[in-house]
Design a binder for these strands. Structure first.
Lengths: 145, 145
DNA sequence: TTATTTAGTTATCAAATGATAAGTAATGGA
DNA sequence: TCCATTACTTATCATTTGATAACTAAATAA
């Protein structure tokens, strides 16, 4: 029916999401790391261990460029590469101790800002938000395929 | 209570939103225009008329760089600059005919993909999604301040 | 009138990013 | 064993992006 209206709502919504997440993550730790590198670290943080190929796919960047950035991250002692014992072409990538520490700080900083946003939210609202997130996650933003 | 759990859910959710929007907008018209320029056009499209300063603020880029990109967009005949008659320092920026056409095509392309995503959604789900979008928009992603 | 502020431009530079070609090494199938 | 494929690396290049300094012109306040 009004799926077209839904589309407009969708556009407004995603714009808002992008703005809010931008505000939340702005100026977090970007002293030592470029935006792309931060994105990679974020991905490793939530999905480790990962392979360079997986990073390449999920971050939409070519394998050569992924390799370059991973090398830089390794030189900064933020990640560790371990060659797979089964298939020695593959690499297992994890955050190093420093990397974990840095990302924990970054996430903590973002969470503080997030909780400020949530300050004045009532208990009922909280439940409603949680439910809405679940609905959209499962029915609209479910990344299969 | 479980606001910390909510934060995790929030992170997962925003990641999913970013991925889906990336997929929806991937390879749309980027032949003639860089990613940053596309973002600017998108913003002009939904907010026109706008000033360079507003673009600068909302797109989080410096005024000099904004000015540069606007110049390029003007050279490509995608936008029009009109000097404000009240305050002649200010500029009013709109999409040109070509720009409107291009952005309409881009949005149409994104909408087609979006509707494909919505193909198998039932009428009840639709209502539920719509409601969830409203809830989150007003209670979580409301960009005041 | 003069000084200050605002809005935008131009120019320049360094760094980040994206694309591509050519290479190595390991695996797996013929 | 030989060949093709996979996983990743190295190198190179063009383009994009971000940052900054210095400028013009208009508006506004002193």
């Amino acid at each position: 029916m009004d799926k077209s209206a839904l589309f407009n709502q969708f556009v407004t919504f995603t714009t808002a999401v992008h703005e809010v997440t931008h505000d939340l993550t702005q100026n977090v730790n970007i002293d030592t790391v470029t935006p792309v590198q931060y994105k990679i670290l974020e991905y490793i943080k939530v999905s480790q261990p990962v392979t360079p190929t997986e990073i390449s796919d999920c971050q939409h960047m070519s394998l050569p460029n992924t390799s370059r950035e991973l090398k830089k991250l390794q030189e900064k002692n933020l990640i560790e590469k371990i060659t797979d014992t089964e298939d020695r072409r593959k690499q297992s990538i994890c955050l190093s101790k420093d990397g974990e520490h840095m990302m924990n700080e970054a996430f903590a900083c973002v969470e503080v800002r997030f909780q400020q946003l949530m300050q004045n939210v009532t208990e009922e609202d909280l439940a409603e938000i949680q439910h809405a997130l679940n609905v959209l996650q499962s029915k609209l933003f479910n990344r299969q395929k």
